[in-house]
């Protein structure tokens, strides 16, 4: 009965079901596998490392609490990102004013608090790359929250349209339209960098 309910025999769903039946090691496996992607998702959504860590912990605590009620209707990652997206959107909604203020401060100081250390060979390339990443961060932060979530899931988590649609609770065509608008917004905002022949853009690897 359970086997038939598991969509496409997703191994993570199977782990969740074994955890539900009382095997704590299954939960540890899920935690090991998805902790980092979830933290990264929150970081890209909210751009605050401390909040990202805190919300990621909240996701796994919710999964832990909800194990008894878990019913595998979709892939485990869909459920996981649905919880994460709801938390992120709620957080962004609740702290809208603070977000605006902090973002302005952050752009002014030009700090990159939680980005990967740059390994560019020359200082010039390093500076250009830092500037590009800074602009990418600001451009993503400027997107409306739902577009932001869709782009992050699509670009950084390789999720399919169908899965993103299930996470966001809309149709697949709505997700395609949402992503089109989001990428178009990003292109418009970063056009000075993405235009062929641009100095910063031409230094790409």
């Amino acid at each position: 009965m359970e086997r038939a309910a598991v969509p496409n025999r997703d191994p993570d769903t199977h782990l969740m079901l074994t955890f539900q039946q009382g095997d704590p090691s299954s939960f540890t496996q899920l935690l090991t596998k998805y902790r980092q992607p979830v933290v990264h998702f929150f970081y890209r959504m909210i751009q605050d490392p401390a909040v990202a860590e805190e919300l990621a912990q909240e996701v796994f605590l919710r999964i832990f609490h909800a194990r008894a009620r878990y019913v595998p209707k979709a892939r485990f990652t869909t459920w996981l990102f649905r919880i994460a997206t709801n938390l992120a959107l709620n957080y962004l909604r609740d702290t809208r004013m603070e977000q605006c203020r902090e973002r302005t401060t952050d752009v002014d100081t030009g700090e990159l608090p939680w980005d990967l250390p740059d390994t560019s060979p020359t200082p010039e390339e390093r500076l250009l790359r830092e500037a590009r990443v800074q602009e990418v961060r600001a451009a993503i932060a400027s997107l409306p929250p739902t577009q932001r979530a869709a782009v992050i899931m699509h670009k950084y988590h390789d999720m399919e349209y169908r899965e993103i649609a299930m996470v966001l609770g809309c149709s697949e065509s709505a997700v395609k339209s949402l992503l089109y608008r989001a990428y178009e917004n990003l292109r418009t905002r970063l056009v000075h960098l993405v235009r062929p022949g641009n100095a910063a853009g031409s230094l790409r690897r």
Binding site: R129, V133, L193
Partner: peptide, 16 residues
């Protein structure tokens, strides 16, 4: 071309 470049730029934002 611009979309392709945007795609590459987005990939540059990596996290530790």
């Amino acid at each position: 071309e611009e979309q392709l470049e945007l795609w590459r730029m987005l990939s540059e934002w990596r996290l530790p």
